[in-house]
């Protein structure tokens, strides 16, 4: 075995998702009204550009197979989910297995003044599910997540406990929570505490 190959093997990178250490601590409580599961192995891209920039919209459509969503909404394709963050800002979540080099693909396709930033390690993506989700969200956030106001496909950036989060409604009793990496330990502990009576289970992929 050559030295560089040996090195390569030694350096097989070990990935630790943001929730890595919290997961081990909160597996399988007796009852769980809320289940948190972290999704890793995806690429997160912060996209900036003018919504009037048609080539920009077109290349996102071409590469990610999805339309840039309007205010407060998200959109999905088989390749990616895109969330509205601001009037010229979106977050794209791409499954690494389906599209390995989205940055290069987008950079190649897009013309004009845009910004594409890889923030894959910056956030923790959580699916939050269960009968206790509505109450958990009410405890954590000042935003109104009632189904009448915030149905499937809606997303919003708001406060979450004393941190912030991007929240998306996936379906009934099913939400996505995207939290900055450095806050995730705090947020997870906060959620476990808020679910003290009903139970909270944390898992990951």
């Amino acid at each position: 075995m050559s030295e560089s190959a040996e090195m390569g093997q030694r350096f097989a990178p070990v990935l630790e998702s943001p929730l890595h250490y919290v997961r081990a601590r909160h597996r399988n409580p007796a009852a769980a009204a809320v289940t948190l599961s972290e999704r890793s192995a995806c690429i997160l891209l912060n996209l900036r550009g003018s919504p009037e920039n048609e080539p920009f919209r077109e290349s996102v459509r071409a590469v990610l197979h999805v339309e840039l969503p309007e205010v407060g909404r998200s959109a999905d394709s088989e390749l990616a989910s895109i969330y509205w963050l601001g009037p010229d800002e979106w977050l794209a979540v791409v499954d690494q297995a389906t599209l390995a080099e989205p940055v290069a693909a987008l950079r190649g396709a897009i013309q004009g003044h845009v910004s594409i930033v890889d923030v894959s390690s910056a956030q923790s993506l959580l699916a939050v599910q269960g009968a206790g989700v509505a109450e958990l969200l009410q405890k954590a956030s000042v935003y109104d997540f009632h189904p009448r106001e915030f149905g499937p496909g809606r997303c919003a950036q708001t406060t979450f406990a004393k941190a912030t989060a991007l929240v998306r409604c996936v379906g009934e009793e099913h939400f996505e929570l995207i939290v900055r990496r450095s806050f995730i330990d705090y947020v997870a502990r906060w959620i476990v505490d808020a679910c003290a009576e009903s139970g909270c289970h944390i898992s990951g992929t």
């Binding site: 560089s4 090195m7 350096f11 912060n46 900036r48 010229d88 003044h113 845009v114 910004s115 930033v117 890889d118 923030v119 894959s120 390690s121 910056a122 956030q123 900055r180 990496r181 450095s182």
Partner: peptide, 28 residues
């Protein structure tokens, strides 16, 4: 455009007369 990448990057600072020698062992 400005995008916060504080949380995306982990930073390890090697400092001292032997910093280069250490880095050279894992960076080729």
């Amino acid at each position: 455009y400005f995008t916060s990448v504080t949380d995306h990057w982990a930073t390890a600072t090697l400092s001292g007369p032997n910093a280069r020698k250490v880095l050279a062992r894992v960076c080729h």
